[in-house]
Simulated assay, not measured.
Amino acid sequence: MTKIFYLGGHFVQFRSQLKKQHILLISFLLPVIIMGGYFAYRSMAPFGQNSLLTVDLGQQYIDFFSYFRRTLLHHPSEFIYSFSKGLGGEMWGTNAYYLWSPLNLILIFFPAAHLSSGVLALTLLKYGLSGLSFAWLLTKTKLQTGIRILAFSTAYALNGWIVANQLNLLWLDAMIILPLVIWGLHQVIFARKFSCYICWLAVMMIDNYYMAWMICIFTILFFIWQLPIINNWQERMRAFSRYIVSSLIATGISCIVLLPTI
């Protein structure tokens, strides 16, 4: 009988874990389906003759994406120095702003002639990962459960800032990484665990320093917002020390990109 209850408990736990995985999967797919349907309706490539390549995305970013693809596949040394930059120049600072997102690797699977389709796939991927990231945060913090997670994660993935800035494709990684940074900071404050916060804040600074400094400001505001939960002033000071030290470590790690860029 004890063995039956033991197996039953494991089965319930397995079902619960499976349900969470389904929620996370759907949180990724919903924004992709919604925006993919919209892009198909507007005949965006590869669904038609129109394209997302307008304004800055079409006038400058697409050239950097093309350079990224060509360099990665044919001329890796040009990541450091390229004669395509004026009469020749270093590329580290340019890459740090435009191209260090690991998601750009998806572009190598698209021929140069169909790079606009690759940009659409990259855009949809970032929409989906934004929803997945926020759903994961809600699951870890237990702020929402069940189908409500999908409501909030989809609203997050399709919020006005993302839609307004989808043509600034390099900025959208910030909305993917932000929930991971916030969960890491929550762990620093309340669980005295540092690895998640340090890792994701460093990744954000390396990915796109322009968005990273705004997220750094947001972590200050989030930390202040969490302080009243801690009743003991001594513990508040310890939490503040952990926050400062872990932030400095993340900054130090990111200096592999930031120092050459400066």
Results as ranks from 00 to 15, higher is better:
61 Y>K: 03
56 D>I: 00
91 M>R: 12
104 N>V: 06
95 N>Q: 06
106 I>W: 08
43 S>H: 11
36 G>S: 07
119 V>P: 01
63 D>P: 01
68 F>Q: 01
57 L>Q: 03
141 T>W: 09
56 D>Y: 00
135 A>N: 07
133 S>G: 12
64 F>C: 01
57 L>K: 00
104 N>R: 10
102 P>R: 03
54 T>N: 03
114 H>N: 13
120 L>C: 14
70 R>E: 12
106 I>K: 07
72 L>I: 11
80 I>D: 12
123 T>S: 13
135 A>C: 14
114 H>V: 10
55 V>T: 08
100 W>P: 01
86 G>A: 03
70 R>N: 15
110 F>A: 08
78 E>K: 07
135 A>T: 12
147 I>V: 13
118 G>D: 15
75 H>T: 14
80 I>R: 05
78 E>F: 05
61 Y>W: 12
127 Y>N: 04
128 G>Q: 03
119 V>T: 06
104 N>G: 10
127 Y>E: 07
96 A>T: 10
115 L>S: 14
142 K>G: 06
139 T>S: 09
54 T>G: 05
41 Y>I: 05
48 G>E: 05
105 L>P: 01
54 T>K: 03
62 I>P: 01
91 M>A: 05
69 R>D: 06
44 M>L: 12
92 W>G: 07
39 F>M: 13
60 Q>H: 05
34 I>M: 08
84 S>A: 04
39 F>E: 10
119 V>R: 00
79 F>C: 04
111 P>K: 15
51 S>V: 02
139 T>I: 12
66 S>R: 02
133 S>Y: 10
123 T>K: 09
101 S>C: 04
77 S>W: 14
84 S>P: 00
98 Y>F: 11
135 A>R: 08
69 R>Q: 15
125 L>I: 12
85 K>C: 00
105 L>A: 12
111 P>L: 13
111 P>G: 15
36 G>R: 02
47 F>V: 06
48 G>M: 03
89 G>M: 04
136 W>H: 13
37 G>H: 11
111 P>D: 13
127 Y>P: 03
146 G>C: 07
82 S>G: 07
